[in-house]
Computed example of a mutant assay.
Amino acid sequence: MSVHEEIESSDGGERYIPQRVPSAAEQKNDQESLRAALDVIAGVHRASKAAQGPAPQNRAQKVALDKALRVGEEKLLRRWAISESKMLPAEPFTDAWQAQGGEGGAEHQVYVQLGVYYKRNNLNYYGTWLSYLHNLLLHNWLFPETGYTFLGLMDVDGFLHSVVSQKALRGIRGATPEEVAAYMLPFDFVPLQNSDYINANFGIIVSDLHHRNVLVRDDGELLVFDPVIYLQ
C-alpha cells in the first residue's frame, strides 16, 4: 500500500493529507495509550485550519505547516494526558537521569533501572507529534526486539516531552555497514547514504543506522536502537 493520498484542493493543487503508516504497522500496535494519543492528534491534521490548504511544496512551507500543526497537537495532547493521568511528573525522572550522569543526546535524556531504559524525548528530530508517534509505531513493527512502550507525556520547563521505556539489551560491539545492510535487506530496505535506508514500496526511511545505534549480540543477532524513522 502507499502511505500517500492525493486529493485535489480547491485551487487545483494537491491538498494536504496527513500521512499514514502501513496498515500492518497499525495492526501490530497493541498499546492503548499510543493508539489514544494518535487518535487525539489525528483530528488536528484532518480538521485544523492549518491543514485545510494545499500540501507544502518546499521545505520552508513544510516547516511552517508543521509549526502550526504542532501548536494544536500539543494543546490537545496536554488536555488528553491530564484527563487520562498520562501527564507524568518531571522531577523523579530528572533526579534519576542526573544521578546517572545526565546521559543522552540531541533528542533523548536516558536513565536505566532494573533492566529497562527510560527515555524522555524532546522531539528535536520531528516537526510534529504525528511524525514522532509514527516513528514509535514503525520502530515497534520493524524492530520489535527493541520496541518502545509509550508511557505518557511530561512538561519540562514549559516544553512537552514524550516518555517511553525500552529493554536495556546489550551488544558486544557495533555493527559494520555490511552487517546492517544484510540485516535490512529482508525488510526490502536498500542503502541511501550516511547510514540511511529506504523502503520505496512503503515510502519509509530509516536513518542513523550506524555502529552506535546497531549493536551485535553475542549470538550474532543485531539490535537496533534509536533510529529516526519517517515517511517520505
Rank of each mutant, 00 (worst) to 15 (best):
E178W: 00
Q57M: 14
S10M: 05
T146G: 06
V112M: 08
S10K: 13
G203W: 07
K86F: 10
I82A: 09
Q27D: 15
G12N: 06
S23D: 14
L160Y: 04
F143G: 00
Y111I: 04
N122K: 13
S48K: 05
K49P: 00
L231D: 01
N58S: 12
E26C: 05
I41Q: 08
T176K: 14
D157W: 03
H134D: 12
F143H: 04
N135K: 00
I198H: 08
Y197S: 02
F202Y: 11
V63A: 10
V116P: 01
E84D: 11
D11E: 09
N124P: 00
P177N: 06
V40K: 03
Y111V: 04
V63N: 11
I7R: 13
L114V: 06
H108S: 09
A90K: 07
H161P: 03
G104L: 08
T149M: 08
L160R: 02
I7L: 13
E73R: 06
D11N: 14
Q193K: 12
A50P: 12
L185R: 15
L137W: 00
Q109C: 14
V163D: 07
V116C: 11
V63I: 14
F189W: 02
L34W: 11
P227N: 11
Y197Q: 04
K62Y: 10
Q232I: 07
H161Y: 15
G104A: 06
L65I: 02
D157H: 14
H210R: 14
R78T: 13
H4L: 06
P92W: 14
E179I: 05
R15Y: 03
W80A: 09
E73K: 03
Y132H: 12
S207A: 13
A90I: 08
N201R: 11
E32D: 10
G43R: 13
H210W: 04
S83W: 02
L169H: 09
E14D: 07
T128Y: 08
G104D: 11
Y111G: 02
E6K: 09
H4N: 10
E14I: 15
Q166D: 12
